[in-house]
């Protein structure tokens, strides 16, 4: 645990998520229960667990993307830099989403040019001067290791890029917003090994500046990239700690079974 080294960026306090059932009378579907978790700044937290363990619900609760589902309900609270995500009635959700940028499993680029994909977020914030945007785009693409490949065709549609390049563009898009937090939801699940390696390299380089949460189905990736690792099972946080420790001497038998591939 790195309490002494890095400040806490995100804290989950007794946080729970459930989805109201469509059918009247049936109980709500619980996705997360009583999660207590601290995420540190300038480190990478790997979140692992089998499907339906609540990993994606965890991420989507941080930037309140879950609000888009009418059936979503939460309990407890999440704090970012000490400020409640749900508590205050005056919470500006768009502002929150700028603070916690998200990269999705499928490399979804906006139907705009490469340049405009990155400029989209800053423009919404009112940072729209040409020189500032140019600088933002260049820095973001360089930080996402994509600049060399696209610098001559910033104006061409982003949809023309390869899958791996699109995903790095998605990362660059988040970087362009200068979010403090980068959340990635299985970012390499649709990518080939070479592209995956590039994304992992990018993430490792980014952790000096950001708080990174990486949800992954790939246990080896969690071990390679994460400073800390959290293991979820059926909506519960089973084990959390230093990645090296979790992968060498897990305290819980279920963690051991999962990371050694006995189920999942």
């Amino acid at each position: 645990m790195k309490d002494d080294l890095s400040p806490v960026k995100i804290e989950f306090v007794n946080f729970g998520v459930s989805y109201r059932s469509e059918k009247a009378g049936s109980p709500p579907l619980s996705a997360l229960e009583n999660v207590a978790l601290k995420v540190y700044d300038k480190r990478i937290l790997s979140v692992i667990g089998p499907s339906r363990s609540g990993k994606t619900s965890l991420l989507r609760s941080i930037n309140r993307l879950n609000d888009l589902h009418a059936s979503f309900e939460h309990s407890g609270e999440i704090f970012i830099d000490g400020a409640p995500v749900y508590g205050g009635a005056d919470t500006d959700v768009t502002e929150l989403r700028r603070k916690a940028g998200m990269v999705f499993a499928r490399p979804v680029v906006l139907p705009l040019s490469i340049y405009e994909n990155i400029a989209y977020g800053p423009r919404l914030m009112g940072r729209s001067s040409k020189s500032e945007l140019d600088a933002t785009v260049e820095t973001a693409l360089k930080d996402a290791y994509l600049w060399e490949e696209v610098k001559d065709r910033l104006g061409s549609p982003a949809a023309a890029l390869s899958g791996g390049q699109r995903q790095r563009l998605c990362i660059a898009r988040v970087l362009g917003m200068r979010s403090g937090i980068i959340m990635l939801d299985e970012p390499t699940s649709a990518l080939d090994p070479v592209s995956t390696a590039k994304i992992e390299e990018t993430l490792t380089a980014l952790k000096n500046k950001y708080c990174v949460i990486l949800v992954t189905n790939n246990v080896k990736q969690a071990a390679r990239v994460g400073d800390e690792t959290a293991f979820f099972l059926m909506g519960k946080l089973i084990e959390y700690g230093d990645t090296a420790k979790i992968f060498t001497t897990p305290r819980d038998e279920r963690t051991e079974n999962y990371i050694t591939g006995r189920f999942g």
């Binding site: 888009l68 989403r97 940028g101 680029v109 989209y120 919404l124 998605c170 917003m177």
Partner: peptide
């Protein structure tokens, strides 16, 4: 228009109206 595009737009801090006018309608 794929739902994912809307999510991507929201996740970048766009409001519903901004998402509709800048992403959904042009598509």
């Amino acid at each position: 228009v794929p739902y994912e595009l809307r999510e991507a737009s929201y996740s970048l801090g766009a409001t519903r109206w901004q998402t509709v006018t800048k992403i959904v309608l042009p598509e």
